[in-house]
Nucleic acid binder design. Structure first.
Length: 322
DNA sequence: AATTTTATGTGTACTTCCCC
DNA sequence: GGGGAAGTACACATAAAATT
């Protein structure tokens, strides 16, 4: 059986994703909700939410026997999450997008001209921002790298990473401050899911200072990479959120800001070809093909665990009653 | 020397397939 | 259908490699 996360009692009623204007989740910023079952096109409907979604559970980070500062960081983020903070909201939304970009989370090798950028944070950062997102499975016979298919772990782990790295009071930053800026075991645990320096830079929340961003990047403005200042991230986050709710193409534009045109287009493919404004129209005439797994999950009422295929992302999914 | 990444093996949970 | 073998996917531990 799937690791069914437990739903707190007071939130036992399954949150409804807004289907029309009458749904109370549209107007109630406090009402419980889930993020993983949304489509990208539905992201603008939850921008007012103050709380983390119900499916944001620490268990999805599989902390196990991780060192105490790691689990402390997860608990700290859950306790301090503030939906009114642009950075927090951005972190959550981007974590969702990141989980849908998977497994295309890798990148090619360093270009030949990387050394010409040495010394220029601007050049290297702008370069990394444009590097293509490619599947991380490059080993010939063996399958793709492990740990990149389930979406909920990404959502919990990316959100936590961005928020914690952006706040000097987080247990993670305090650990770094006491350990010469090393992220410690955090690097390996999250790096196995491609939550690493390179992708933080590529998503626009961090600077790359040295070609070592392609190697074993150490943290610090004197080394390979560092987070942008909170005010810079906040400005970026505001722009992202503003794009997201700007118009019918908001989700595309916001995805493009963070992940680039290619990813935005590939995630958007289906809805563009079917005439754009499918949002709010309810049923689509030709429902996208579902994976076997998805079908099983629907049958088992595990829709909240649903992992959408690319083609489904922008579709307005018909909700089954639960 | 320190830090991060990559590779490999083990255990576990689930899925798929196949045979009865 | 049921039930077991084979296959898939993951976390975790450990070791090794790469880079600064």
């Amino acid at each position: 059986m799937l690791p069914r996360y437990s739903v707190p009692q007071e939130q036992a009623a399954m949150p409804r994703v807004p289907r029309d204007g009458r749904d109370t989740t549209l107007v109630d910023a406090e009402a419980p909700w889930c993020i993983n079952s949304l489509t990208i096109g539905e992201l603008p409907t939850i921008l007012h939410k103050h709380k983390l979604p119900n499916d944001f559970l620490i268990s999805h980070a599989s902390l196990g026997s991780a060192e105490s500062y790691i689990s402390a960081t997860y608990h700290w983020v859950i306790k301090h999450y503030d939906g009114a903070s642009p950075i927090h909201k951005f972190a959550l939304l981007v974590s969702y997008l990141f989980s849908r970009v998977a497994p295309k989370l890798g990148h090619g090798g360093a270009p030949n001209n990387i050394s010409t950028m040495k010394g220029s944070t601007k050049d290297i950062t702008e370069h990394v921002r444009q590097v293509a997102w490619v599947p991380a499975a490059e080993t010939k016979s063996s399958s793709s790298r492990k740990g990149v298919t389930k979406t909920l772990p990404f959502i919990v782990m990316i959100t936590t990473t961005i928020i914690a790295l952006s706040d000097p009071l987080s247990p993670l930053r305090k650990y770094m401050a006491a350990h010469n800026n090393s992220l410690g075991p955090w690097s390996q645990k999250h790096g196995s899911k491609f939550i690493n320096a390179f992708n933080l830079v590529r998503m626009g929340v961090a600077y790359a200072h040295a070609p070592a961003i392609y190697g074993s990047p150490k943290y610090g403005s004197m080394h390979a990479w560092s987070m942008k200042a909170p005010l810079e991230i906040a400005a970026y986050a505001k722009r992202f959120i503003s794009l997201l709710k700007s118009n019918a193409n908001g989700p595309y534009e916001a995805t493009k800001l963070v992940f680039g045109t290619t990813i935005a287009s590939s995630l958007n493919r289906r809805s563009v070809s079917s005439g754009g404004m499918s949002r709010g129209t309810g049923l689509s005439r030709s429902p996208p093909r579902q994976t076997f797994e998805n079908k099983r999950k629907r049958e088992h009422g595990e829709i909240e665990e649903l992992e959408l295929t690319d083609d489904e992302l922008f579709e307005v999914k018909r909700r089954r009653r639960l």
